[in-house]
Each structure stands twice: as C-alpha cells, then as structure tokens.
Amino acid sequence: MEQMDKHRREDFVQELFDSIAKRYDLFNAVLTLNQDSYWRSFAVNKAYIKTGQSILDVCCGTGKLSIALAEKAGRQGQIVGLDFSETMLQQAKENIRKTPYSQRITLLQGNALHLPFSDQSFDCTTIGFGLRNVADIAKALSEMYRVTKSGGTVLSVELSKPSAPMLKQLYFLYFEHLLPLIGNLGFKKNQPYYNLPASLRTLPDHSEIQKLFLQVGLKQVTSYQLTGGIAAVHLGIK
C-alpha cells in the first residue's frame, strides 16, 4: 500500500509540474521576491565546486540551478540535469539554449529515487527545490550519496520553515492563502500552487533534513538558514 502511495504521489507531482512548466520561473521570481536566485547562488558558492568537475543536478526542473552550476564549473565542467517531467525538461532546454553553457549541460528524464548512474559517477550531486516533492526523501538522498564520488559533495537548497514565531505565522499565512491565489491565476483548476503549502507542511524542518544527510552516510554536514529560515541549504561530504 505504501509503495502504491508513492507511485500515486509521483504521478501527481509529475502531472503538476507538467502543467506549470511554462510559468514556473516567472512565478518563482515573483512569489519569492526574486530570492530564489539568491538562494541558488548561495548554495552553489557553498558547494566546493572546482573547475572541470562533473555534477548531477537532480530534479533540475527548468534548469536554473544547472546553469549556475555550469558557470561555476568552468569550461571543462560537465553538468547532467535530471527530472521526471518532460515538460520541465523542455523548458530547461529553452533556458539553457540562451546561455553559453548548452554544450556542457546534458538533460535526462529520470527518477530521483532510482538514479540511472553507476556508483561514484559525479564529483558533486545537487537538488534544488525538489526534496519536498520526492516520494521518499531518505531514498533520494541515499541515491545522491551513491552516485557521488568519495570526497565529493551532496547539496540541497530547499524551502524551509522559519523558527521565529511571528515570522512563522506570517510565512504560513502567505503560503497557505495568498500564494495559491496568485499562483493559480490563469489556471482552469485551482490545483498547482495549492499543492505548495501541503508539500511544505509534510517537509521535515532543516534540523531533520540535516539528520537525514548524516543517516545516509554523509560527513561534515552543515546547514544554512536563509531569509529568516524561509529557505535552507544543506551540504555534506562523502
């Protein structure tokens, strides 16, 4: 039954992102006051990425994090962006085509819970705003750990939950009421952005994510709370 629940969740999330792919970047910028760009930049700068490294970007979505990683890895760097939404990958292809990095980023359709790569394939493995949507966070992190080389890094940047009581109340008021109304403008069904508060409610807080990083075997795990705890970056070394 649990396995069936995971399959249904995967189908739901895939359908959701297929439906919002063309507007995903615009709404992320508007609804986060463009903080998502800062969060990605902060994460990439913390990832110990060196020139020429190979990097896997899991749940790459529209490719924004993959592009930032390609810039950091330099001319010899190679990035693989993986996502299970074909529509999101099409949008990523369009975004990447507008950059100087199209020859260094390969896009691939696949599942974060069953990464189609051999053990120790990448110097760094990342996931941006994807943990809250996978059916099994521990399994996704375990797969990221598996495909990362010894001494390599595993990185997550994700929405989180503020700890300050007043900010936490305002945060959930915004995400549970105002954000879905804005985000769903133009959709016939009030579905896509109404899923965001639900995914945040079930997402472990930043301290629990840090424990999961440790449980899969990562060492020297560090976390950073950004913008008052609205987002969090986690980093571990294999």
Results as ranks from 00 to 15, higher is better:
residue 20 I to C: 00
residue 90 Q to N: 14
residue 120 Q to H: 13
residue 55 I to F: 03
residue 178 L to Q: 06
residue 195 N to L: 09
residue 39 W to C: 00
residue 40 R to V: 00
residue 3 Q to E: 14
residue 32 T to H: 05
residue 176 E to I: 00
residue 134 V to W: 04
residue 153 T to Y: 15
residue 183 G to D: 10
residue 187 F to L: 09
residue 136 D to Q: 02
residue 189 K to A: 04
residue 148 T to S: 04
residue 83 D to I: 06
residue 199 S to C: 03
residue 218 L to G: 04
residue 45 N to I: 01
residue 78 Q to I: 01
residue 219 K to Y: 01
residue 131 L to Y: 06
residue 27 F to S: 08
residue 145 Y to P: 00
residue 182 I to G: 02
residue 162 P to M: 12
residue 207 S to L: 10
residue 164 A to N: 14
residue 116 P to T: 07
residue 48 Y to N: 14
residue 227 T to M: 02
residue 183 G to V: 05
residue 65 L to E: 12
residue 37 S to P: 01
residue 171 Y to H: 13
residue 110 G to Q: 09
residue 196 L to I: 14
residue 234 H to M: 00
residue 103 Q to D: 13
residue 95 N to W: 00
residue 55 I to E: 08
residue 234 H to L: 01
residue 227 T to Q: 11
residue 70 A to S: 10
residue 34 N to E: 12
residue 98 K to P: 00
residue 32 T to W: 03
residue 218 L to K: 10
residue 102 S to F: 12
residue 22 K to A: 05
residue 214 L to P: 00
residue 96 I to T: 13
residue 84 F to P: 14
residue 119 D to V: 08
residue 110 G to C: 06
residue 120 Q to C: 03
residue 143 E to W: 03
residue 233 V to T: 14
residue 182 I to V: 13
residue 175 F to W: 14
residue 24 Y to Q: 07
residue 106 T to H: 15
residue 194 Y to H: 15
residue 138 A to E: 15
residue 202 T to Q: 14
residue 27 F to M: 14
residue 188 K to V: 07
residue 101 Y to K: 09
residue 214 L to A: 09
residue 96 I to Y: 08
residue 186 G to F: 02
residue 4 M to D: 15
residue 54 S to H: 12
residue 93 K to S: 12
residue 210 Q to R: 11
residue 84 F to T: 11
residue 216 V to D: 11
residue 68 A to L: 10
residue 173 L to K: 13
residue 65 L to F: 03
residue 46 K to F: 03
residue 64 K to D: 15
residue 94 E to Y: 04
residue 88 M to G: 08
residue 188 K to Y: 06
residue 69 L to A: 06
residue 154 V to P: 01
residue 237 I to K: 15
residue 172 F to S: 10
residue 114 H to T: 07
residue 24 Y to F: 09
residue 224 Y to G: 00
residue 13 V to E: 12
residue 92 A to D: 13
residue 96 I to K: 11
residue 114 H to L: 10
residue 172 F to C: 04
residue 83 D to A: 01
residue 57 D to H: 03
residue 89 L to I: 06
residue 28 N to D: 08
residue 93 K to P: 00
residue 188 K to F: 06
residue 212 L to F: 02
residue 112 A to P: 05
residue 115 L to R: 01
residue 15 E to Q: 13
residue 128 G to M: 09
residue 62 T to S: 10
residue 60 C to A: 08
residue 142 S to T: 12
residue 111 N to Q: 11
residue 190 N to M: 09
